[in-house]
């Protein structure tokens, strides 16, 4: 494993399986009387959130605390950051506090990359979502969830070879889509991105996936359908005018009962949250047995524990892991 986790592309096939298998073992902790391990005792994990995301922050916080790390939550809201303190000065402060890992959520694409490579801090950097770039732990928890649902109760050592994953929605602005395409490709899955042409980035032909404008054409062959959040503001002129109306979006790209009926029996429905019920996903679909939305949240903690354990334990000199 690299010292940092910034992108879905940072993980080799072996690294990704190591994280998923480790998370699988750590998931057992939930059934134990004491849901805590002493592994990261005396180490400090800083949650550095320049953007509101309670879900992701508490997931990382729970993960770090279950490994006995000291957790410092640093939210940009109401702090010196909102008073104009730079990313650099914030980083220097964290360094002075002895952060072993910095979990960073930032509105600017590449901010975690800057944090990791500018020499401002020595600790490991975990990207918890940067701008419209990446969100690698979300991709890991998605892959973990797919593996559990599709590969059986003991999916250890298995990848997603041959699985067909259809990701639907605002790919252009989605960090979840980028990380998932990269990681799922590494794990052998075949990914198809489905969106109106306005919401697919220029240059997507070079991504390791296929694209389609037609959701209905993809459903029957999908093992997984992942719906991305689509912000209603995107249809306004100020928001870019990417599609004409919520109604039209929902009709062409929303997952409703009619479309779910076309899916194979074993297929699952995922959503990284937060959902726009009635927009990209119908309420009855979100709450159905196919939906993994609640599991994804639970799995997020196990996966983030695995990431923190693998990044923080181990010597700094010896980073090579054979698996």
């Amino acid at each position: 494993m690299n010292r940092h986790l910034l992108s879905g592309a940072d993980l080799s096939h072996a690294d990704a399986l190591l994280v998923l298998d480790t998370a699988e073992e750590l998931a057992q902790l939930a059934d134990r009387p004491i849901k805590k391990l002493p592994t990261l005792r005396g180490r400090t994990v800083v949650n550095l959130f320049f953007e509101d995301s309670t879900r992701t922050r508490i997931s990382f916080e729970a993960a770090a605390k279950r490994l006995s790390a000291d957790v410092i939550n640093f939210s940009a809201k109401g702090s010196s950051v909102s008073k104009g303190e730079s990313l650099k000065d914030t980083a220097l402060t964290l360094e002075a506090m002895g952060a072993d890992a910095v979990v960073v959520r930032h509105h600017a694409s590449g901010a975690p990359h800057r944090l990791a490579h500018s020499g401002w801090i020595r600790g490991s950097v975990v990207n918890a979502g940067d701008g419209t770039h990446e969100h690698p732990t979300q991709a890991l928890l998605d892959a973990f969830t797919m593996r559990r649902r599709l590969n059986g109760d003991r999916p250890l050592g298995t990848d997603l070879t041959g699985r067909r994953v259809t990701i639907v929605g605002d790919v252009l602005h989605s960090r979840v889509a980028r990380s998932n395409v990269l990681l799922l490709h590494t794990l052998g899955a075949e990914v198809t991105l489905v969106a109106p042409p306005t919401l697919l980035p220029v240059g997507i032909d070079a991504w390791p996936c296929t694209t389609s404008y037609d959701l209905d054409g993809e459903l029957a062959k999908s093992d997984v359908v992942m719906m991305l959040r689509v912000q209603r503001e995107r249809m306004t002129t100020e928001g870019g005018g990417f599609f004409p109306s919520a109604r039209e979006y929902s009709r062409r790209y929303g997952l409703d009962r009619r479309r779910v009926a076309v899916l194979p029996d074993h297929a699952i429905v995922m959503h990284p949250g937060p959902m726009n019920r009635g927009m990209e996903i119908a309420a009855e679909v979100a709450d159905s047995a196919r939906s993994t939305i609640v599991e994804q949240v639970t799995n997020g903690v196990s996966v983030r524990m695995a990431v923190l354990y693998l990044l923080l334990s181990g010597s700094t000199e010896i980073t090579e892991v054979t698996a």
Binding site: G110, D130, R175, R178, P201, V202, G203
Partner: peptide, 9 residues
């Protein structure tokens, strides 16, 4: 171009 999409810029 290709890179702006990948880098999310």
């Amino acid at each position: 171009g290709e890179l702006s999409g990948v880098l999310g810029l």
